[in-house]
Nucleic acid binder design. Structure first.
Lengths: 226, 226
DNA sequence: CGCATAGTTGAACTCTCTCAACAGCCGTGG
DNA sequence: CCACGGCTGTTGAGAGAGTTCAACTATGCG
């Protein structure tokens, strides 16, 4: 009955959404959940597996992806603390979920999770909002993939990642290959364009995983095509 | 609270979903709906408009799209009879919806629509399933846009369109430009590849809008990369 | 009949990919 | 402690898929 990994954030419904961790409705959830840890690179589940659990990222980061028969990969999403994984999957997984770094998750049996959601209006709305949010960001990405140039994609990506962390600093726990597969580019192009942005002084990058948005306005205009 | 146009089909929940038109829960909806007609090319709403109605396509076809500041367009979806339009929009439209041919719609005030959905479990599930379905197809399209070649995209598109009509015949009410903007290609490429498929005997095409899938199996292997 | 719009086809160009080499980092083990 | 191999990231050069520009055809509508 479900299909994607979800993210509950502030845009829809209201502020309640972001505060998941401390909301009363979560109590009902926590009762049925168990904590688990996943090492970097380990899979939470694979395409084709039975979808009998729902997860929430507590710490770390998850990457969801799909594989084509010839090995081409597409990264559907990166999930960070607070995001749900595996909600909205049908009975069978349509994607693979792997930890891109040491990751802590809460794991809920799907039946129970759905029962709780069914009972609890507030949680139901939360899940619904997460679903809407997922759809909205999927649409943003379709525009990105369908019509944006490589520079525009990278700029958009950096801004998206920056939105999750308030200051200008961006942590990129994923590899260049992950970024490439997320943006529909190749590793080389990602690397080249990051270097170019660095050379132009738009971003700073001492280590490959740590980026600082130096000229955010410039990035924003680049993201939109300028 | 909403963001996209939705489509309720059979995959999720159950067969009930496809039979929308004849379901009991729809009675409640029809009470609050009014019928309307839209000429070819006319807009149902524009990006930025207040989102105070939800629509259902009765007849014809709707195209939803987004525009970038420099005029690049991306077509989010084509909506056909039975599909909902404008569900899951926030208070402001994030996309433009236009009729690609003479189109009949049912129009429901959003407040009332949401109230009915809130009341009616069955309808709620229907909307929820539609949302899941929209997300699933958005994910398919991200893979398509991110990793498929032009031929693979066209083949996938033709198969998608064919799935809506049982026989091998495909009606394409949209222009080549619409298809191009939907698949992240240019008009010329779409045209060229359709010609190529025709020359190879994979499809037949007497008029640009009518296509017959002659060798469906071939198309299917093309769609996946073979 | 003539103009506007949609579709097709050709040729040149370009952005991104592919292939290849190299650099940097890290953990393992001698 | 350093050498080594493996993995990730960077950079260069050449190739190619799809775009851009342009001309032409077909279709429909006044």
């Amino acid at each position: 009955m479900f299909q994607a990994s979800l993210r509950a954030r502030s845009d829809h419904t209201n502020a309640v959404v972001t505060a998941t961790g401390s909301m009363p409705e979560v109590a009902a959830l926590e009762k049925i959940g168990t904590r688990m840890t996943l090492e970097r690179g380990k899979a939470l589940f694979h395409e084709g597996d039975p979808a009998d659990h729902v997860y929430k990222v507590v710490n770390g980061a998850i990457r969801t992806s799909r594989l084509m028969s010839d090995g081409r990969r597409y990264v559907l999403d990166f999930l960070f603390p607070g995001d749900f994984v595996g909600i909205n999957e049908d009975s069978v997984r349509t994607m693979t979920a792997e930890a891109i770094c040491e990751t802590v998750l809460m794991r809920y049996p799907r039946r129970l999770f759905e029962a709780v959601v069914e009972e609890d209006r507030g949680l139901g709305r939360l899940v619904y909002a997460a679903l809407c949010d997922g759809l909205a960001s999927a649409q943003d990405r379709m525009l990105l993939l369908g019509r944006k140039t490589a520079i525009e994609r990278i700029a958009s990506f950096l801004l998206m990642m920056a939105d999750r962390r308030p200051d200008g600093r961006v942590e990129l726990p994923m590899t260049r290959a992950d970024i490439a597969d997320y943006l529909g580019l190749t590793v080389e192009t990602v690397s080249r364009i990051l270097s170019q942005l660095k050379a132009e002084g738009v971003i700073a990058m001492r280590e490959p995983t740590r980026i600082v948005l130096v000229r955010r306005a410039k990035l924003e205009s680049l993201a939109d095509g300028a």
